[in-house]
Simulated scan of single mutants.
Amino acid sequence: MKRLTLILIALTICTGMILTLTPFSLAAELSNDDCVKCHTQPPADIAANGGAHKTEVTCMECHEGHPPTIRENIPACSSCHSGKSHYELQNCLSCHNNPHTPLILHLAKDITGPCLTCHQEQGVLLQENKSFHTTMACTACHQEHAQVPPCVNCHEPHSETMVQADCSQCHQAHKPLVVVYNDSTPSESCGSCHEEALSQLSTSNTKHQALACAACHKDKHKTVPTCQDCHSVPHSAGMMKKFPTCGECHNTAHDLNL
């Protein structure tokens, strides 16, 4: 009887140990397929907008272990992302709110420095070509990542028919005062600023009236050609000596005194 009692006690102890150890030591290891059984939204986010988080890493490679055996299984961004100045910034989640959709950014309206760690060329252009745009935060214009807003959101168009393609033909947003254009630029675009010159030209009865502004003021804003560029030396040497400046007789190219 005593021996039977000892055997029962031993069996009870062993059974208790097995039941206690089973959830941890005898449980199967987790796989990525197990994650979606409880966590439905993160896999859906990754599938839709995961970027490299979808193609380069798995759930288990990022989240090593699972509570309660591992209490802190949310890795720091720097554990994978390093080697660039952008990755040295603090508080990644202020823009990259959801690590499962890393390229969908939520931006505040006064951010510049973090943007320029990736978009350095644009920062250089703004500093080398001072304008009001230089004083603005990047996110004042680019309120969403990779979004390029139309100029007319802030600026009155030069004409009623003007569209964004017309703006960008002459003005680069990061150096807006460096105006360049081609020969096909309509004179109406110029006339919105140079109204008097266009008015004089459009009412002129000379051949200049048929010319587009860009035909004379070629390639770069404020280019003023000499009359000789087109007309060579139109008068005798004696007259040119007496009146060396064409405007003494002909006023301006937009309003010739003929």
Rank of each mutant, 00 (worst) to 15 (best):
C92R: 14
L93I: 13
S94R: 13
C95K: 07
H96G: 03
N97T: 15
N97M: 12
P102W: 02
L103S: 11
L107F: 09
L107R: 11
K109D: 14
D110R: 08
D110M: 04
D110Y: 05
I111T: 08
G113A: 14
C115K: 08
L116C: 02
T117L: 11
T117Q: 07
T117I: 04
C118R: 06
H119C: 04
H119L: 04
Q122M: 13
Q122F: 09
Q122N: 06
G123A: 05
G123K: 06
L125N: 10
L125H: 07
L125C: 03
L126D: 04
Q127Y: 04
E128K: 07
S131E: 04
T134W: 06
T134P: 03
T134C: 01
T135C: 06
T135V: 06
M136C: 06
M136H: 11
A137K: 06
A137I: 01
A137M: 09
A137D: 09
T139R: 13
A140Q: 13
A140E: 12
H142L: 00
H142Y: 07
H142V: 00
Q143V: 09
Q143P: 01
Q143W: 10
E144V: 09
E144A: 14
E144I: 04
A146K: 13
Q147E: 14
Q147F: 15
Q147A: 14
P149D: 10
P150L: 00
C151P: 00
C151Y: 09
V152I: 14
V152H: 12
N153K: 12
N153M: 13
C154R: 11
C154D: 07
H158P: 08
H158D: 05
H158M: 11
E160A: 15
E160G: 15
T161V: 11
M162A: 11
Q164E: 15
A165H: 06
D166A: 04
D166L: 04
C167L: 01
S168P: 00
C170F: 00
H171C: 09
H171D: 05
A173I: 15
H174T: 15
K175L: 15
P176H: 08
L177A: 14
L177K: 14
V178E: 15
Y181A: 07
N182H: 02
S184N: 06
S184V: 05
S187G: 05
E188K: 08
S189R: 05
C190E: 03
C190H: 03
G191V: 06
C193W: 06
H194V: 02
E196K: 15
E196C: 00
A197F: 12
A197G: 04
S199M: 11
Q200P: 00
L201C: 06
S202C: 03
S202L: 10
T206G: 00
K207P: 03
